[in-house]
């Protein structure tokens, strides 16, 4: 017991424990890393399919940050991510456009809005208002647009609308500059 009382032993022990911890975590990370990446990709792919049901696969263009859903090698439209801060934090939204750049639809990838109120932005009764809108109509009805806000969740609704509109405008500008 004598050795355990002196200053050296506790430090050694703590170092050893930290070392074991690092090894254990590195191993777990090595096992789960690919799975986690895959889960993230799957999530976007699943959402893409609900936007473009005819899709057979998709490509991702890193330079323009666009997802291009394909059927028989032909693009069905474009999709990209939009982000906007809502009530409880960042909301990330997948925006789908038709080839003629009208809105195909949107899907909520992640959000931390209040359950039961703001979180309803991910439900279909809200999302189904978006398909077919022109960019300028993506605005809440009380501000002259075409989207009805969710009762009791104006902030979350308006965050989605603002985020989507801004993302489409930015993306169109960016594509115009590139071509």
């Amino acid at each position: 017991m004598g050795a355990r009382k002196n200053g050296f032993y506790p430090v050694m022990l703590l170092t050893l424990i930290v070392f074991i911890s690092i090894v254990a975590l590195t191993l777990t990370n090595a096992v789960t890393k690919d799975k986690i990446e895959l889960a993230k990709k799957d999530e976007i792919a699943e959402m893409l399919i609900t936007l473009f049901p005819k899709m057979e696969g998709f490509t991702y263009d890193e330079k323009s940050d666009l997802y291009i859903p394909l059927a028989e090698q032909q693009p069905l439209g474009y999709a990209f991510m939009a982000e906007k801060s809502g009530y409880g934090g960042a909301i990330s939204i997948l925006v789908g456009l038709e080839p003629d750049t009208t809105l195909r639809g949107i899907r909520i990838i992640s959000q931390q809005e209040t359950p039961g109120l703001g979180s309803r932005i991910a439900e279909s009764f809200f999302l189904q208002q978006f398909p077919g809108l022109a960019v300028d109509d993506v605005e809440l009805t009380r501000k002259g647009g075409e989207v009805d806000a969710i009762t009791g969740a104006t902030i979350s609704s308006s965050a989605v609308v603002e985020g989507v509109r801004k993302a489409i405008l930015d993306k169109l500008n960016q594509l115009r500059r590139e071509t």
Partner: peptide, 13 residues
Amino acid sequence: VTIVDLILQGFIP
């Protein structure tokens, strides 16, 4: 906790 967190992220995202 980190091990559980990583497993959940990978297998039940």
